[in-house]
Design a protein around this nucleic acid. Structure first.
Lengths: 99, 99
DNA sequence: TAGATATATAGATGATTGTCGATGTAATTT
DNA sequence: AAATTACATCGACAATCATCTATATATCTA
């Protein structure tokens, strides 16, 4: 189980967020992901590595191609955290112990 | 409405994530937040600024103290995004247009 | 086996970040 | 008014990051 902050950090980049949206419901090879961006191939590779490190994607080689897909467990975990945040984000009490 | 990546980036730090957890259901002044950490006061101030920039917290001065509270709208927005990700994170199709 | 294709890794660079001590500012207290 | 308290801002510094070009690796194809 990855650190919560690591997961959110991985989500905190526009390119990576777009990659994730591309992968919703699909499995894509790097070349297809690459063709959706204007950044270089190594940059995409770098972002995919970051997403994999955070546990957000899985990769699977098939011949010349490597297919990337989302890792549902990691998204379920992040979703659970944010769901609690959203539910409890309304402040009721006010605390102050300092003087 | 803040950029999605900005919100996740703000969530992607252990100290900021802890601050958020402290603020769940509560409104706290900086001194109380500070006393829960071992980092310096300017560091906490810096993180609160980052959270505020992302729209995740609101602040309200009251005499000497400034109270910070969570901003439910931002959390609802982030939650909605992750909910969709979690729901659609199971890959069904496989695409490849490159050769 | 020699090229071609798909992807990763290495190394460099400029930008951003997390942290700190020092200082500034606003409000309160004495 | 002077000191104190709560918090923010400034400036510095090391670490991390996003990006690139160049190169390496793995697989397929001719």
């Amino acid at each position: 189980m990855k650190e919560q902050a690591e997961i959110f950090k991985a989500l905190g980049d526009p390119v990576r967020l777009e990659i994730i949206k591309l992968l919703l419901g699909k499995e894509l090879c790097v070349c297809d992901i690459l063709s959706a961006f204007k950044v270089s191939q190594p940059t995409i590779s770098h972002h995919l590595k970051a997403l994999k490190y955070a546990g957000l994607v899985n990769d699977q080689r098939e011949g010349k191609w490597i297919y990337y897909s989302l890792a549902p467990e990691a998204f379920a975990q992040a979703n659970a955290v944010l769901q609690e945040f959203a539910a409890k984000s309304v402040a009721k009490e006010r605390g102050r112990t300092c003087e």
